[in-house]
Design a protein around this nucleic acid. Structure first.
Lengths: 211, 211
DNA sequence: GTCTATAGATCGATAGAC
DNA sequence: GTCTATCGATCTATAGAC
């Protein structure tokens, strides 16, 4: 904290508003579409009109980029949670969470959630990236448990058993559902959302017609 | 068909019983642990005591290896289904399916199901591999739907809504659960299995103590 | 901060001897 | 069927000019 006092004024000379965050955004998109091992500095450089050396200036090793990527995603999730904190009820918040997955699905080529990517490629990740990935998963999981518990206490949600177990089921289904949608069509994911909603509320939701 | 008539007697000169299937088995294991983009011919060669050129003899391009990999997995799934065909009831068969995932989990380093790997890396797969991956997912999904429907008809399983929707939920949860287990610990996957069983049968299953 | 240029490693793939 | 040897492409990463 307070590091802004004695540091550079952080000016932005040319085109991009902030190259560092432009790199992060581009890399995040690439990771969700192609996996962390599925893109290179060249991909980012081409897409942003830079040279790979410029990216190495901001992130010396690809591992640094990966760690920053997950860390930024964790922060944005925490901000997202904070913004929803005072929303009416837990079911509204859970629906908002579902909607973020729908946005991933309908994005170009179908982006996965970072947890899914990192889980799938876990065997090739560095130790430092594994730590970040575990923290991300722990935070999402903790939020899910609290939200499910609160929803049931308020009488807006119904499910059997322990919220700790149900949270794993819901989280795993959403994560796996995005991957299945790539293989079996986006409609599979909408079926999944409908089923989750039916079981959690007892009401059959109305979703758009088959595409 | 009938190609065996005029072809080589398929002898096995040295150590390995059949190099081609040894390569496939090794590659399958590597893919489930590290992803299809996470291993090279060198990994296989080292592990089998071969040179990479020997692997290129059996599979000229890595894409050929990938296609053969998924095709073999599809066949083994179909054989697995056939062997269970005359088992008592649908719930027993579904439990057997759950058990294969538990075996993946408890394998060294935690292997994913191929569907999860291919779904996660879909953006980097060739068209031919995408076709095979889609066929695999379609076959698993079709079996899940039939099994769930039959289980409910027999009164052994209970769930709300359409079996087509429930099948996506169960399949996605299993697939995502293996990935989450890598990030959050194997116990998460056992919680998931317990929750699925509780919801499908109404009975709380007894699983081993926390590790 | 971004560039040119390049090192060093690894990867997929091929040619040809045995 | 497996080997040695090698090619060309790609990737991560660094040095140094601007």
């Amino acid at each position: 904290m307070l590091q802004a006092a004695n540091s550079k004024p952080r000016r932005r000379p040319r085109g991009q508003p902030d190259t560092r965050s432009a790199i992060l955004s581009c890399a995040e998109q690439l990771m969700q579409r192609r996996g962390f091992n599925g893109f290179s500095y060249q991909h980012i450089a081409t897409q942003l009109g830079l040279r790979t050396a410029a990216i190495h200036y901001h992130f010396p090793a690809k591992d640094d980029l990966g760690v920053a990527l997950v860390r930024r995603y964790r922060e944005s999730f925490q901000n997202w949670v904070r913004e929803l904190e005072f929303d009416a009820d837990a079911w509204t918040r859970l629906q908002a969470y579902f909607r973020t997955y729908l946005e991933h699905l309908e994005s170009d080529e179908g982006r996965l959630c970072p947890g899914g990517v990192l889980g799938a490629e876990f065997g090739t990740l560095s130790d430092t990236m594994r730590v970040e990935a575990r923290l991300l998963m722990r935070e999402i999981y903790a939020w899910l448990v609290l939200t499910l518990e609160e929803g049931r206490r308020e009488g807006k949600l119904r499910f059997q058993g322990d919220a700790y177990d149900k949270a794993v089921e819901v989280g795993a289904a959403l994560q796996g559902g995005l991957q299945i949608a790539r293989l079996a069509g986006a409609q599979r994911f909408r079926q999944l959302l409908g089923q989750l909603e039916l079981e959690l509320t007892g009401r059959k939701p109305q979703i758009g017609p088959l595409p």
